[in-house]
Design a protein around this nucleic acid. Sequence first.
DNA 1: TTAACGTACAACCAAATGGTTGCACGTCGA
DNA 2: TCGACGTGCAACCATTTGGTTGTACGTTAA
Lengths: 113, 113
Amino acid sequence: MVARRKESEEALNQLFRALADSTRRDILARSLTETPSVSDLAARYEMSFAAVQKHVAVLERAGLIKKRANGREQLVSTNRARLKRAGELLDYFESIWRQRMAQLDDVLLPKGK
Amino acid sequence: MVARRKESEEALNQLFRALADSTRRDILARSLTETPSVSDLAARYEMSFAAVQKHVAVLERAGLIKKRANGREQLVSTNRARLKRAGELLDYFESIWRQRMAQLDDVLLPKGK
DNA sequence: TTAACGTACAACCAAATGGTTGCACGTCGA
DNA sequence: TCGACGTGCAACCATTTGGTTGTACGTTAA
């Protein structure tokens, strides 16, 4: 249901790692409402263009953003489905807990009711 | 509301980074339903005790688990509130999007209705 | 047609990460 | 009481990460 069985652990590692950096979270939030070019983004941070470009690449590899070419520009937009997926994953941990508690109930309570 | 304003970016980095490792996610899931000792955990993975201990330390620093001493053992349990927090954070990204869309509506539509 | 722009990528570097082994020390059980 | 157990921590190592500068190359505008 949640786990589409064998969404590689590596992919999840990448997903969460991509979120583990303030600059990347900011890029992500920004690309949620706008569709900035990589240079647009680079202009907003106190680091080199190449550094920002690398952050964008990390987000892209994690599947959290998409790039679309427009002439010489690359326009960045957030992949909301993928972002949502990260949230679901965390909910999943909660659900594991609920499930097991339910199973425990099954053991402790008479079957019928 | 969500952002308790100045939950340090560093803390968020730590939170997501802690989640970005399969072994740690497994420890987390396991500690959600049981309260294993560090050795119990270590026995389940093909790495040294010290390595597992380090993973536990990472989770603890991120606030995702708590340890409780019981004689010579340290019993590990998940801090569900903190885990939930990570999920909320991701929802927050979604909400940013919704908010901005709403603001856009404010601009585009007559005020009253 | 050229200069400037936007991007990609390689080479390099310091610091952090994820693993190891070894040692110290308190606790428990025989 | 004493050996084994559970833990914490330091030292070490290889790899990854997050940053830099420099170069190359297609695109755009004057």
